[in-house]
Design a protein around this nucleic acid. Structure first.
Lengths: 208, 208
DNA sequence: GTCTATAACTAGATAGAC
DNA sequence: GTCTATCTAGTTATAGAC
């Protein structure tokens, strides 16, 4: 296993757990069992390392997601909102095949990216991977044509918030569910709890 | 204005904007225009300062919130979920009277507390202010008796995620809404977009 | 209570030997 | 490509004069 990949794996794990600001290069290189200077040799800076960690997932996920949403959009009958959101499940769970705990790690990282580092990752994702967002908006419009562009904007951000925040604390939530209710939960169970919630939220009646 | 309050105000502003980890005592004391050593003199440590910033809001908010939820619970007819969530509006907006931008600042801080610093603030809030959570659960149970304790647990966390995440990026969202749609939005507009979303989410049909 | 000065430590980044 | 050693700048926290 190459030094570069050892760093990426260690960084991913620590970033998801403690955030980007909360993780030092020394912790990363120590966990990866490589020299401190290797990060700057292979990636140039911590910021570039963060981008590299996210890109590894996005390059795997975004084509699958676009394909899945395209199928939904090309159906003859308009989809339900639950169908639209369910289009995310298979691509997201495929990250678990690509990498152990991939789904959970990626969603946690996404959450970190939105709150740490004052939105530089939000900028990175929306400018580097605009296709996914566009296709998603089209799918929602087909499912709920009465929603205006403004309403879609707001409700998609609320959805993003629900998903990303839940996933970034999913480890803690799974622990609590286990200890308080004896529920043995995994990441796909969490996804199946989130989908009806956000589908109902996006489909909520409009108030004026 | 006392040194202590100058520190609290500056810390609140910077913590909301850049997170707890991302804000140094030097930035705080410099914005507050007090000496660096004053933080440790008045609060003992950065961690205690964080608690003090949150407590100032929670001590104002939690009695209002408990009172508001108690009214909802004591109504003869069970409330709707929208009514339950609307019980939060007046107490939250009262923070704007208590302090300029209080509502927005508090909700942003709450978001930070859940993602920064590995849940120490979550622990602090749930152990120090359990009354609000209990009353909230009772109100939701009256509104939607078919929901099991587990379902309420999950959906309340999803709600928390939606609210807290949205609010922690509310400045950015308001800016985008302004530039893309010409919408002039303030924090109470955002709250009025969130309520139907989370009420519908919590009230979503159960899948088994 | 407020200040200066500084201790004790950690951060990201790099020069240069191998 | 990998290492050690080190630089510069930042961090929290504190001792002690005023």
């Amino acid at each position: 296993m190459s030094t570069k990949n050892k760093i990426l794996d260690a960084a991913e794990h620590l970033f998801a757990d403690k955030g980007f600001n909360g993780t030092s290069l020394r912790e990363i290189t120590s966990l990866a069992d490589v020299n401190l200077a290797a990060v700057n040799y292979h990636f140039g800076s911590k910021k570039e390392l963060i981008k590299a960690v996210m890109s590894r997932y996005m390059n795997e996920l975004s084509p699958r997601l676009e394909a899945s949403l395209t199928v939904i959009c090309q159906q003859e009958t308009p989809p339900s909102l639950v169908e639209v959101f369910s289009a995310f499940v298979e691509p997201l769970l495929s990250l678990n095949v690509f990498k152990e705990n991939g789904t959970s790690n990626f969603l946690q990282l996404l959450g970190r990216g939105y709150t740490d580092s004052q939105g530089f990752l939000r900028w990175f994702l929306t400018t580097q991977y605009p296709g996914v967002i566009e296709k998603f908006v089209v799918a929602v419009q087909r499912a709920y044509p009465e929603l205006s562009a403004e309403d879609i904007f707001w409700r998609l951000h609320l959805t993003m918030g629900t998903v990303v925040f839940t996933m970034s604390s999913s480890d803690a939530l799974m622990d609590i569910a286990q200890s308080d209710f004896g529920q043995q939960i995994d990441i796909s169970d969490v996804i199946n709890k989130v989908i009806p919630f956000v589908a109902a939220g996006v489909g909520a009646p409009l108030v004026h």
